[in-house]
Design a protein around this nucleic acid. Structure first.
Lengths: 212, 212, 212, 212
DNA sequence: AATGAATGAGTCTTCATTCAT
DNA sequence: GATGAATGAAGACTCATTCAT
């Protein structure tokens, strides 16, 4: 048993090495443009070996993607842990950290943005579906985490009593959009770059209340 | 002149027919998964004929994409025209109309979401770059339109005095995100579906002002 | 009849215009790389019109080729006419003139050198064969002309009594080879460039040494 | 090391097998008419495999061509070795052997004759250029060999003191032309077929007449 | 367990030729 | 006679996956 356990650990390590290479490659190009050869070369392994750890290119892709999604939510989780009872500051913290992560992993961000990534890859009803469901679960779990944090903010009277799921959703979309603008760096489209503006829009809205 | 004019009109019509087929195909699958053969078949033309109207698959793709982007902004423009001096209602109108458009063109929405679509397709520095710039211009022009509308709202004292570009940006991202959630119809992730909630978040923010 | 004759003349002129364009195009690229479109464009005619004058690309090619071969032999003929009774000088003249022609028409020379040109183009036993036979006749007639000139030289005791056909043959091959070397201008392979050397090799081989 | 050596040997053998098929196909038709599929079929390998050994069709072609050129010169070299100090007989030997080679490889001879083969194939400035330079070097080296042999003949007083490069050049051209005539077997154009005549033309041109 | 040689299906693109106007 | 839009066959090349060693 001890021996098998060591074998498993080795197998796990090898898998991680491959995923690292896979991350690098899929972050640098399309799913179709990326080749298994390239990943094998980057992992300093033969192509055949990759197939001992992943059944095919799609699993390689989804596992990489999964890893990234896990990262995203664990970053959010850390931010939350730091400000468990101050959702306003906690939300700011989530935004700042995730934007930093995306800026440091622009390739992965593009991957994440890609429609293909989002549950579209040839839904052959077969294995892809299995992979997608795995990712779906991670996303759901992650979103629930944020939702609960928002709900806590509502409960303690810091946030407005709007459906927490809707708020969580808008929060993540705004982050995603902001990262997109920064990363693609389109001068004319880019928000002013002041994260504060975006945060303030989210927190206080855009409508002017004359009566206040 | 009359004759040439007819020929030109015919050419233009043919082009539109092809674009229609192209729209249908690219809306149903990836750039790489879509084949020129399929587009030709759908257009009920021979493959060779397509190449008389578009220099290659990439131009076919970008022209289709361009068309869609133009549609998006012209829809926004119409909404604005309807409520020139009531930005609050106008913004709601933009959201409602664009969401309807995306729901009726889910394929195109996916296309639009895809990162590849956004300026990434193998930047060969050659023709692709040319196409991208064409699209970039359309997007910039469209965003400016919305920005000016927002600015007008600020000027007449209906909207808060936050940078208009930032507001326009958040607005579009929220719409994009909302459409995404609806279209992918992920039960657990989907916002409650009440557009009002999202609109209200955008308009009034999520922070509760106790003092009010 | 008069009218038809004019029509025929016009047709002939048009044919020549096309052949001129064809010459230019086939001189600048391979048979396969050259396109009918390109010839049509150069002739400032529509593609369809070309097919009214030549049944297909092959005929276009062979007719062009034929024209060139005729030129080659008519140049030789002119040289001969100038020195009817001095084959030594006449041979020099042929060499000088042909080399000049090839240097001024390097494209055509390459065409001529090409194996395809030499009776190889997909001997489909059909029309190509017909074209080839037309060219073959021209070549035979041209070579006979030179042969007779050589024979005359033998008869008047200026040239050695070797089979005139063999001499004519070697003469033309040496010219061809020399032109090749000049045109491809390969420093290390190029003969010294002194035509005199080559001429002297040839002549001293065929000139009768009376004193011996 | 032993193992790697075996692998390398196997690779080399496979390459040779492919080249053999390539030789057969390119000898039977144009560059453009020949298809990679056909070569693969003849080699009894899949198309993909060919691409493991040659980067593209052009390399396949040039490598085949290169092989043939090497053959030509190694045949000349053998002839020279046999008669190191008798250039007259040596030259005859070269002629006889090369003509035999060409008659046994008429397809390759046509290939060799083709202008395209000679440095013309779409000079894309890229890889083709590289291939061409490789061939150029072989030709230059081969010609130098013959040139030196001729020079030796001059030095020992058997051949006239004409530039050795010019003589070597004429020699090869005459062989080429003779082979051409034989292979294309054009009754009316064919030299009498008596090699002796051609040899004598050449020799009496270059043989020093001591008595004169 | 690891390798990497071999496979062959899949797709864009070109272009000679035709024919309705 | 002239046009040029339409056709569709043909071919180079790529790459995920397998399997004998």
């Amino acid at each position: 048993m001890q021996k098998q356990s060591r074998r498993e650990r080795e197998r796990e390590n090898r898998r991680k090495e491959i995923l690292k290479a896979s991350w690098a490659v899929f972050s640098s190009k399309d799913y179709d443009s990326a080749t298994v050869d390239e990943i094998a070369e980057m992992a300093e392994l033969s192509k055949g070996t990759l197939y001992l750890y992943f059944q095919n290119k799609a699993e390689l892709f989804f596992s990489t993607f999964e890893l990234g999604v896990e990262n995203v939510f664990s970053i959010a989780q850390e931010a939350i842990k730091e400000k468990p009872d101050d959702p306003i500051e906690g939300i700011k913290e989530i935004m700042v950290r995730l934007l930093a992560f995306f800026e440091n992993n622009t390739g992965f961000f593009k991957l994440l943005s890609s429609e293909r990534a989002h549950f579209e890859l040839k839904s052959d009803g077969g294995d892809n579906l299995k992979f997608k469901n795995r990712i779906r679960k991670i996303v759901i779990k992650g979103m629930k985490l944020i939702e609960e944090y928002i709900q806590h903010g509502i409960d303690i009277g810091v946030l407005k009593d709007i459906d927490a799921k809707d708020i969580a959703f808008v929060l993540m979309e705004v982050i995603r959009g902001f990262a997109f603008a920064i990363i693609h760096n389109i001068e004319e489209l880019r928000p002013t770059g002041r994260l504060e503006n975006v945060i303030s829009i989210l927190l206080d809205g855009i409508r002017k209340h004359n009566s206040v």
